[in-house]
Nucleic acid binder design. Structure first.
Lengths: 314, 314
DNA sequence: CTGAAAGCGCTAACAA
DNA sequence: TTGTTAGCGCTTTCAG
């Protein structure tokens, strides 16, 4: 009898006695309703999918944690998948999630064209996190990367620095490009050298960032360095320490563990993963409730945290 | 016609012409097979669920990353959920995952009795990660916590330390208890003070660990400290630096960012999240293939990484 | 080689 | 208040 379904769904139209009987049976058989079958019938599933480079990355792990928290508030399970910066893999995992009929998708896109995703938007809402996807008109929740690195340059310049170098992540990623552009603009606005000798904008990991810093130090004698990503800071800062060059000023994009304990403390522009994740889930649920919203770009504010390394004089 | 299904599943018994026609239609309608309906019919779903304290924790984020990687090798999607150290929440999310018919579950249990999970094991394999669950006979993949902290004590003692303090995480968690026990044993084995004055084993976060360290420093004059968890190290080490007491030797359980760049570098016992995650997935898939395996405890080896803070003389 | 029918576990709609 | 029927999208079985 399908009265069982009514009991499970707290339908009012069921006699107390019957309800009791059904619940007894449920207990005796330790019966558990199959939520997948329910989703199939309902035609929709609450799950949301999140696709990032890797979960093992300070920024993305905080992002995923915030997403999981926000999602759990509306009882939505979270499926994770990682791209490892591989466009083919990204496409594969996104399509897998779509086949699973996730109700929506949060995506930190890899580099490259994403127009293949456009048709999917028609039935599966997508909110981009941290960076835009070329060729895709979708919501985006992130920060104003350009203004952020520009403010880092301004900050250093206000302490008298003129030879400010830049170490950045893979320029294929729009976010990296925006950050580099912000650096360039701020340098140019102050009439500072922006010839390119001071720029090493292709360091996708700490090791290459460390190597780039070593070269910069040897050849360009910068008095300050802007690091465009946490994974770069994790190379720049250790190298400065191992070379005993902690006299070089540093402002990093993205906070990290022990930044405050190092000597000097590392001045950073905080990259608010929590706020980005929370906002992204909210935007996604809003779009789930009303499908025809216009594609929006939401910028979460960032803050510069003074800790010493960014306030070193020339 | 149900020939479509045959095309999708690469069934050999279908004429090339028909296959072509079906594929054309699939393309034209941008049809995507519903993997949930498939799972419903098949009675089984490949997804595995992972339940941890929080994704935003260096150890667990590495663990989740490793799990996702290992799972993707067998094409298994990963559902994450966090307990936030709340037993009620843990039960709720586990039951949610079971209702979704995940094929198996990876669980880092909260403190407290877990016998409620026992009946679930009959149909949903569970592999515990990092720590046992009281009242539950299930596989466990972790490290020998006891031996690890004991070796930390031995290491410090070999440099002449006798007043070795201990700062640890919440003692409700079996792992924390095992680590404390290892410390105690090693201290006792050397005839060192283990009265309890040197022990602060209830620091569930960096702030409380920092406060505990301050008290220890003021009242007990330890020459060395064993930190029983990364989250404790993140309080102990900054406090030592802010108090200019970097003469105190430190060995921490669990590696962390910049541990090598601090002065002195922090000697740690690495907590191999990658290996634990990979092993756990392997054990789970093994159990999925053959349900009647005995409950096993698998210990992944740990290594002490010398960086300076653990090799300071008295 | 292809089609038709049945059923996975669930619920909406209708009937009793 | 309760039971029956149908069908979500898929695959397995059995006929054609």
């Amino acid at each position: 009898m399908r009265t069982a379904s009514r009991v499970l769904n707290d339908d009012a139209r069921v006699a107390d006695l019957t309800r009791q009987r059904v619940q007894d049976v449920i207990r005796d058989l330790s019966f558990t309703p199959d939520s997948m079958a329910r989703s199939l019938r309902a035609g929709t599933d609450a799950t949301i999918g999140i696709v990032v480079e890797s979960v093992d990355d300070p920024f993305f792990s905080k992002l995923v944690a915030a997403v999981e928290l926000a999602a759990s508030e509306s009882e939505r399970p979270v499926l994770i998948a990682s791209t490892r910066r591989d466009a083919d893999r990204e496409r594969a995992v996104v399509e897998q999630l779509v086949r699973r009929r996730v109700s929506g998708l949060l995506l930190a896109p890899t580099a490259g064209d994403h127009s293949w995703l456009q048709p999917i938007l028609a039935h599966t809402p997508v909110v981009l996190v941290d960076r835009p996807a070329p060729g895709l008109a979708a919501d985006l929740v992130g920060v104003d990367d350009r203004a952020a690195t520009a403010s880092a340059v301004d900050h250093l310049a206000s302490y008298g620095h003129r030879r400010i170098a830049y170490v950045g992540d893979d320029p294929g990623i729009p976010t990296s490009r925006a950050r580099l552009a912000g650096y360039r603009e701020a340098m140019a606005a102050r009439g500072l050298d922006v010839s390119g000798d001071l720029i090493r904008a292709d360091c996708p990991d700490p090791a290459s960032a460390a190597a780039a810093t070593a070269t910069l130090l040897a050849e360009q004698a910068p008095t300050a360095i802007v690091s465009g990503a946490t994974r770069c800071s994790l190379g720049v800062v250790p190298l400065l320490h191992s070379e005993k060059r902690t006299d070089v000023a540093v402002v990093g994009f993205g906070d990290f563990t022990m930044a405050d304990t190092l000597e000097p403390g590392i001045t950073v522009i905080d990259h608010p993963a929590d706020a980005i994740g929370t906002e992204a889930v909210h935007r996604l649920t809003a779009r789930l409730a009303q499908r025809d919203l216009p594609a929006l770009t939401i910028h979460v504010p960032v803050h510069l945290i003074r800790r010493g390394s960014g306030e070193l004089p020339v």
